[in-house]
């Protein structure tokens, strides 16, 4: 209470950064519920089809999954560093870090593209003849794999667009060292995308 009073006295700007971040967190909770529902479906089907899930997961490429995990974790780091840079009034470094995030995100999507196209080439995609011949548990595994990593990939793409817009705004001094809550909130979105992957990775790539 005390604090917000001082802020209004010091500079007569009507703005509430804590409120803005809180709003972003509320949005993130809806995202958690969206993915949470899918994790729930995954949990029940995996419990019902334990052996088939293991067999189906063997065909996923653990190497590419691990590589994408490292890429995404690093991209999360560069977003955090970009915020630290703008707090240190270093506009140039902030943009450099955001560019690194965008580059890493692109690498993630390229890997995803190769991963999926290899699967497609082997005839494993939703509704394919080869997949439908497999036992029910494996069809469920691949259905969940495509929907969950697909929705996650869509989030990566949206995150890339948002971070690109944010980068332009830093360049044009719309986002400044005194006013960077938009960068913080976009960062929160990006970290959520990373968080979801932290769970997707062991659940799909590391079943033994």
């Amino acid at each position: 209470m005390n604090n917000s009073h001082e802020v209004t006295l010091e500079n007569h700007v009507h703005r509430d950064d804590v409120g803005a971040r809180m709003g972003m967190w509320l949005f993130l909770f809806t995202e958690v519920l969206l993915f949470g529902g899918m994790f729930l479906v995954y949990a029940v089907y995996r419990f019902q089809n334990q052996e088939q899930f293991k067999l189906a997961a063997l065909e996923l490429n653990t190497g590419i999954g691990t590589l994408n995990t490292i890429i995404l974790l690093t991209s999360s780091l560069t977003v955090a560093l970009s915020i630290a840079a703008i707090q240190n009034k270093n506009k140039f470094l902030s943009i450099v870090f955001l560019n690194s995030t965008l580059l890493l995100a692109l690498m993630f999507m390229v890997n995803k593209y190769f991963e999926w196209s290899t699967k497609f080439a082997h005839g494993i995609y939703p509704g394919s003849k080869e997949l439908l011949e497999k036992p029910n548990g494996q069809i469920l595994f691949y259905g969940l794999y495509y929907v969950m990593t697909g929705l996650h990939g869509l989030h990566v793409l949206i995150g890339m667009i948002i971070l690109y817009i944010i980068k332009r705004q830093i360049k044009k001094d719309i986002i400044t060292p005194d006013k960077y809550v938009k960068l913080e909130n976009s960062g929160l979105y990006w970290h959520l995308v990373d968080l979801i992957w932290i769970f997707l990775f062991p659940l799909f790539y590391l079943i033994q």
Partner: peptide
């Protein structure tokens, strides 16, 4: 890992 990301990165 999530706790680290949420507490520090976020």
């Amino acid at each position: 890992k999530s706790a680290l990301v949420i507490n520090i990165f976020m």
